[in-house]
Design a protein around this nucleic acid. Sequence first.
DNA 1: AGCTACACGTGATTC
DNA 2: TGAATCACGTGTAGC
Lengths: 238, 238
Amino acid sequence: MDFMGFRGGAGLYQSVGRRNGHVGGVAEVRAALALKSHSEAERRRRERINSHLSTLRRLIPNTSKMEKAALLAEVISQLRQLQTAAAEVRRRWNVPSDIDEITVEEGERVESSGSSSSTVRSIKATICCDDRPDLLADLKKALESILRLKTVSAEISTVGCRIRFVFILVTTRTSTTTSQEQEPAAGVITRSVQQTLKCALARISSSSSHRRRQNQPDFFSARNPRRISPLESSSSSS
Amino acid sequence: MDFMGFRGGAGLYQSVGRRNGHVGGVAEVRAALALKSHSEAERRRRERINSHLSTLRRLIPNTSKMEKAALLAEVISQLRQLQTAAAEVRRRWNVPSDIDEITVEEGERVESSGSSSSTVRSIKATICCDDRPDLLADLKKALESILRLKTVSAEISTVGCRIRFVFILVTTRTSTTTSQEQEPAAGVITRSVQQTLKCALARISSSSSHRRRQNQPDFFSARNPRRISPLESSSSSS
DNA sequence: AGCTACACGTGATTC
DNA sequence: TGAATCACGTGTAGC
């Protein structure tokens, strides 16, 4: 315990030299004191970290005798499982989270019922953001007027100040079907929807004086597995 | 970097002495080599731990610039929230987990419809364990024959080899209502139910050659916040 | 004997 | 400047 402090003190003593002809100079004792408080602070820091590690051991079964790295690996595994499970439950129940999110997936292609041979795509767009008046109207307008999509259904759910939409949209062919323009590829549509929604929300969040609350939402507050900067998400898996 | 190794080497050198009249003896170089591999191993260990810490930083937003202890505190907070949320969802959906569990809560007191003035208590008992044939019958028998409880309903759900029951039970007054015995307190009943179920399951698990699978269940695999040794749980909050 | 994991004190760095 | 964090090499104990 003490031999280390002693050794450190001796080393410092040699470098400083015997000023004033005696070994117990003020500089030396000051340095020794500093060194001591330094080691004590470091010990406190270690205790803090190890205390947290032991509560993690308590939180996850069968990790009592694991080494530190293995414990952290278990923590990571558990956290990943829980985060993905929570995201799945949120998705199925349409529960808003505290993180802004936009996902757009394309549905199956559907034959148009009209007389022409054109097809119609269905698109599922989910938006999670802060609520505010006329948000639904604004989003619908953006989707319908800019992208000429038809809103088949809009499922809405709010928790506190947060809101989550699930839009089911279909492409509409204008009367210019006779023109030479080809039907856009699916990826183009989803990206356009995403961009449009992103811009609409960016406009809104910049105009309003909302401040994001930092922490502790109500239910299934799990942050998403990946960091998602506000409204920059991209997920289009089926 | 090197001064530490040099200092350590010097100390060792003094203790060993100048064997064979020269400073580069075999013992010295062996010791130096051992010290070197030691420090390298320690560096690898540090890298392993820090790598896990950085993936934790990636898993939880806004922890990039946190100090180590604060990061671990955030991890603990997240894990707690997710574990309790998952337990709540499991409870509501009656999803079996991979951990044996018995909880007994007493319901509200209900006036008996009979002519006597005796009352009836309702009890909700949930059991999560490995499935096996005749398990339901065994449990029902134990509850009804030993404790003279009537099974109002039994909700059952299985995932893989795991099963979870939710029994709704009511106390039955025998024809000896006229005797001098008092109605037992609620805590006594719940404890009795718990003990009976625990014994029934212990009998089963010891007789069968089941081995608990260690890890990675299907859905909502969260272990419970508290360590629960098999069939020793106790939770009777309302 | 070696190998591994942990605790410790210390230098470097930042604020 | 002190106070705090982190990385580093080392001592030490268990297998």
